[in-house]
Write a protein that binds this DNA or RNA. Structure first.
Lengths: 109, 109
DNA sequence: ATCGTTAATCGTCGATCCACGATTAAGGTA
DNA sequence: TACCTTAATCGTGGATCGACGATTAACGAT
């Protein structure tokens, strides 16, 4: 039966215990905002341009205006971006604080 | 009409152009893996323990075995974790390389 | 060979996503 | 006021998610 012991897998013997899973939800929510190519592109655009009118974003993506608006809504609800009404247009900008929260949470993985 | 100019929003005047959106898809895919609290907890567990048998993960989460197995499948498909069969059990471990890819992509935002 | 354990898979259900066109609301302009 | 532009919202349809119980497959042990 020594053979059995020899095949022993190197599974971590430490007892299971979840670390602070409080922020699991927060990270999941922020990651969700980035979990779609269109939203990644929108975020990159806003990061590089500081701010951008909705119409420009629509023009840049191969998506209908309503679809882009939906993604913007998701990003806004996640707190990653802010929208500011400017006459008939809407200026979107990145929420640097939230972006850093995401970066920190991912980096802390 | 000076009033109109005074109210000018500080919208970035630079022309719109998407930066290398090639990795938008890659980031979106990796972020998607982390975009669920259960998967965040699983990842944290594996990161802290190096490796872990499936059953332990199931025991740690308030979810059915089949549900956990689904999440493990998603994580495996994203490349974030690897599973190694050990007799009737399965040992999961983190894919450090992919994890770093995710960290790098997020940090590069 | 049979039984028990472990984990993946199947099938289902409701909820949500994602895309779109159409419509509406809000603000400028003529 | 009437018109035009801009962007949010509505309503729809198809696809996928997330959860579960039940079943199956793989492996050890008796």
């Amino acid at each position: 039966m020594a053979k059995k012991k020899a095949k022993q897998r190197d599974c971590d013997p430490r007892p299971v215990s979840l670390p602070d899973d409080d922020c699991a939800e927060e990270l999941a929510q922020l990651a969700w905002a980035v979990a779609h190519p269109a939203r990644v592109r929108i975020l990159r655009l806003l990061i590089n341009r500081e701010t951008c009118v909705c119409g420009e974003i629509v023009a840049e993506l191969p998506l209908a205006q309503s679809t882009v608006s939906q993604h913007l809504k998701i990003l806004k609800e996640s707190g990653m971006i802010n929208g500011e009404i400017d006459g008939p247009k809407v200026c979107y900008c990145i929420n640097t604080e939230k972006l850093h929260t995401l970066k920190d949470l991912v980096a802390a993985l």
